[in-house]
Design a protein around this nucleic acid. Structure first.
Lengths: 252, 252
DNA sequence: TTACTTTTGATCAAATTTGATTAATTTTAT
DNA sequence: ATAAAATTAATCAAATTTGATCAAAAGTAA
């Protein structure tokens, strides 16, 4: 195995795990630790990873898209939990819509092993996340760039989404209640979410428990639209009951 | 099989695979390893691929935020010069096409002050560069993501580009000669460039002097298409004269 | 045809890469 | 703070790859 092959392998492993040890890689690839160390040094020189004692760490993402530099707040932990749960709903061979919310974004890490997979999205961070993942094809919607949300919006983007069909759509929301259904803060975003929901067989809404029972200002979809709600453990029994009573399947 | 044919084959294989070994290519093409080695050296000189021990790797990523932290090589300095020159051709109020080449990307820095400006591109780095720049509207083409080039490609992207019209198009090329016109390394990229050129009033080709008189493997446009060639000072007088004789305006 | 140039292939010395061993350094535990 | 453990850099030998030289083959022009 030559250097290009090893480089590919090392970066692939590192993309999944946050960090790794020299001996660990050496064993896995059946290559001497000395060589791995030399490779790591070279890769570190290229700023593709960060060298540590005994191993290496993932490089700080070079893409300007890898936004969402949130801290590990309680909300972020919840989002990550939801992302993992939602990713488990995806099967190899699926075509899925992913919208541009931060909760939906947390799915990405867990999707990298589910291949083949076709992802249609309007989110640049999502597109960037799968840029170099073999077996995952990304289709990016075209249209006006929204720098604030790091996503593509506008009628052209909606038209793009509508021209495709997917097995599953994963969308976020700013509010969810039995009374108002799904509500959003921004119209541009809501239009995209609606388009995705309309072109998918199954619609999953990702939404942390703090948003349940709360309304944002724009109603964009009824609860009947969703196949299931993916949320966290902090949802109350009362909320669960009310949603189930209205035909909403809840996963947490 | 002559050199041009082999060059074409090698680049074609490399466009699909990440890396390849000398013996592997030799076997596949039924040519001696020695010859392949000579070919690879020549292709590496043209920066169409990266030579490694025992084989070759795909050409270095052509954008700032990945792999191979570009050093300030002679080639990079030339590109930056060309970028500055080309940016001077843009006026406030323009709508422009920017393709996904590294040379074109160098224009971005210099465009940030030229407002208002509307940019239509298939390059994610370009889109990212203007994400938060007020006064500059970015329209991103939609379609299949090309992770290698960090750009959007495919028929959907071409269709997207075609649905717009711009005052000026700035495109790169892998080779430019009086005999073959503009030549590219990758077909997917060439199709986009052609679409941009076809929907713009003025077409500017950005290309450093080392690529002048050299051909890559795919002819994609005649010299008559371009309004002007933007290059660096190292172009020879002979080349200048030959191009001018064929109606090409040269800026450097 | 012949003479000449270019390209290709084979052979071998030089250079590079790899893996093992050992000394020096850093980290961890007491 | 000191000792023990682990990691790393350095050195060296073996294996592989490469570049150079030269001969054969293919193409060119007269």
């Amino acid at each position: 195995m030559g250097y290009p092959e090893r480089k590919k392998q090392i970066l692939k492993i590192l993309d999944k795990r946050e960090s790794m040890e020299v001996q660990e890689i050496a064993d896995e690839l059946g290559i001497s630790a000395v060589t791995i160390r030399r490779d790591l040094q070279q890769l570190a020189d290229e700023e593709l990873l960060i060298r540590t004692h005994g191993g290496a760490m993932k490089a700080p993402p070079r893409h300007p898209f890898t936004a969402y530099a949130d801290k590990e707040t309680q909300a972020v932990i919840k989002k990550k939990y939801i992302g993992k749960l939602a990713a488990a709903l995806v099967e190899p061979g699926d075509t899925i819509f992913l919208d541009c919310g931060s909760t939906v974004f947390t799915m990405c890490t867990h999707l990298k092993d589910i291949t083949p997979l076709r992802i249609i999205t309007n989110s640049l961070p999502v597109a960037a996340a799968f840029m170099d993942v073999p077996g995952i094809q990304v289709n990016l919607a075209g249209g006006e760039m929204d720098g604030q949300r790091k996503a593509v919006h506008g009628s052209k983007a909606v038209e793009h989404i509508r021209s495709y069909h997917a097995d599953k759509a994963f969308i976020g929301t700013d509010g969810l209640s039995v009374k108002s259904g799904l509500t959003a803060f921004s119209e541009t975003e809501a239009i995209i979410s609606t388009a995705m929901a309309g072109s998918a067989d199954q619609v999953f809404v990702l939404c942390d428990s703090t948003k349940i029972g709360r309304d944002s200002y724009l109603k964009f979809a009824p609860l009947s639209l969703l196949h299931a709600l993916v949320t966290d453990k902090d949802i109350t029994l009362k909320q669960m009951a009310e949603l189930k009573g209205n035909g909403v399947k809840v996963m947490n």
